[in-house]
Amino acid sequence: MSFVSDVREVARSRELLVNLVRRELRSKYKGTALGWAWSLINPLATTAIFTVVFSTVMRVEPPVGVDGLHSYPLFLLCGLLSWNFLTAAVQGGQSVLLDNGNLIKKTYFPRRLLVISHVAAAFVSYLVEMGVLVAVFLVFGVNVLPWTPLVLGLMVLLAVFALGLALLLSVVNVYFRDVAHFVALFMQIWFYATPIIYPISLVEGVQDGQSWAADLPLTTLYQLNPMVGFVESVRDMLYGGQLPPAGPVLYALAFTLVSLWVGNAVFARLQGRLAEEL
């Protein structure tokens, strides 16, 4: 099956997709007293912890942003929310086929929908969180509204990137269950390799400094990480109030296309035997 017919198949089942997303969202906070508030409490708590640890104790200096803005929590949130979305989409997405084994073994529907709906549900939380962040910026007197269409575009791009990874990992995870553990470890490394809790200028500082790593082409290696483009570009617009450079965005776009294509191709190849392997 070609990529186009895969897309068509998904498009035909959009109604089921909507219902699956709704199921995911409804069941997520079912049975909790605070309900949806949890999706805001979690990033707020993480922000508070990181602010205390990295800003107050370790004195990471956030750069000065638009209109002299100088706030570690806002600086942090610009990257953290995107990261949280990626983690939710990929880490949750990789087990979604295992979790729905019974459904796969007893009913037929396009299997991709399970992964897509999971990523879409995470995206809905991401949208809400980013909406709140925009409101906070407005409260701080920073008018970020003109940037929102571009930010939204990057968010969608990130979602497609995450979808590719989730498609790949979800199906591979059925055949090799320890992929999930490996991914958990890798995500931790990836988190620190992305300028979320610290500004990218610190990495450039290492190369000029005295440490053992000074001889490595650190910034070049660093730029290989596609998440740098996503995080830095969103931050440039919201926190820095400026248009991000095109290079990292195009790089991230290329990565997104590769991720989706590879993820979909592997999924298409391996999905045939899902009902037997689960």
């Binding site: 089921l16 709704r22 199921r23 409804r26 069941s27 079912k30 007893k106 009913t107 529907f109």
Partner: peptide, 21 residues
């Protein structure tokens, strides 16, 4: 087979119905 234990019967009717097309 497609019922989600936490959701109401109503939600499950819609969910299961759409799984079945």
């Amino acid at each position: 087979a497609g019922f989600h234990a936490e959701l109401s019967g109503r939600d499950n009717v819609y969910l299961n119905g759409s799984i079945l097309g």
